[in-house]
């Protein structure tokens, strides 16, 4: 009886969580430029519009580029820090790790304002790199946490085993450590990428009027009235995120990455 009650509760909450997506997906199929739910008529025109008009395609491409570069930079920052902290216990690495966790402890607005002031002081305000670099350091928390979680799962005996078989420190990293943490690196990349794709406030504050990312475009067009095209864009975003996370789950242990205990232990 209470087990059924529990399942009912989980289903109810899951429905609540999924509801906005269901409605947005429904709205995107409207035939006319009005938002009805359930949709009136059925048309995929809005999806075609989104992928074929530069009005939407340009911000999508901008966002993809920013997200891809920011992700690569964030991983490149986090990987050496996590590795040196884990393998050699370097104090400086620990300090950098602590610093890298700060962005997620603070409301994003404060970081965004910091970036805004910084970039206008050094003269990069409004540039593509202002958005990209700001994203990469803002999102570095994700790879820091996930890669160090991944390193924690590496048995140190494996490193000794590799050394006894003739592997140098570099070879140990390339042939043992990196392959073992690869799922975590991949997972962290997926998170970073999706977060950067959808990040609004920082992109808006450091280059909101020049570098139009997809979230900025969505917010801007909201001012001029709603259209099912925006719903179609939202559906794309949700599908892209869900697809990437699904891939992560296939490739590695998603539950472990979000911190669950491995049940096989």
């Amino acid at each position: 009886m209470s087990a059924r009650l529990g399942r009912l509760y989980v289903c109810f909450v899951a429905l609540f969580l999924a509801m906005p997506f269901i409605v947005v997906a429904g709205v995107s199929f409207n035939e006319k430029k009005r938002l009805y739910f359930p949709p009136r008529g059925f048309s995929l025109d809005w999806y075609r519009d989104v992928v074929s008009t530069p009005e939407w395609l340009d911000p999508i491409l901008t966002s993809l580029t920013v997200a891809a570069i920011a992700t690569v930079i964030a991983i490149a920052i986090a990987l050496p820090i996590c590795f040196m902290m884990w393998r050699h216990g370097i104090l400086f690495a620990k300090a950098l790790f602590g610093l890298g966790l700060v962005p997620f402890m603070l409301p994003p607005v404060t970081s965004a304002l910091g970036f805004l002031i910084f970039w206008s002081e050094i003269g990069g305000y409004g540039s593509f790199w202002a958005t990209t670099i700001s994203h990469s350091v803002f999102l570095v928390t994700i790879p820091l946490m996930m890669i160090s979680l991944g390193l924690e799962t590496v048995d140190e005996d494996l490193l000794d085993a590799a050394a006894s078989l003739g592997a140098t420190e570099t070879e140990i990293f390339k042939t043992v450590i990196f392959p073992l943490i690869l799922p975590f690196v991949f997972g962290a990349s997926a998170f970073c990428f999706v977060l950067s794709m959808n990040e609004y406030i920082i992109a808006f504050m450091v280059a909101g009027f020049t570098v139009e990312t997809l979230p900025i475009k969505v917010v801007n067009s909201l001012r001029y009235g709603y259209s099912p095209a925006m719903a179609a864009v939202s559906v794309f975003s949700v599908l892209a995120a869900a697809g990437l996370f699904l891939l992560v789950a296939r490739f590695g242990d998603l539950l472990k990455m979000v911190g669950a205990l491995d049940k096989t232990d």
Binding site: F191, L195, E199, S237, A241, A242
Partner: peptide, 14 residues
């Protein structure tokens, strides 16, 4: 978990 992560990463815009 994927549903949760989607909401968490989609930011406030969508």
């Amino acid at each position: 978990v994927i549903l949760l992560l989607c909401i968490l990463t989609l930011s406030e815009v969508i």
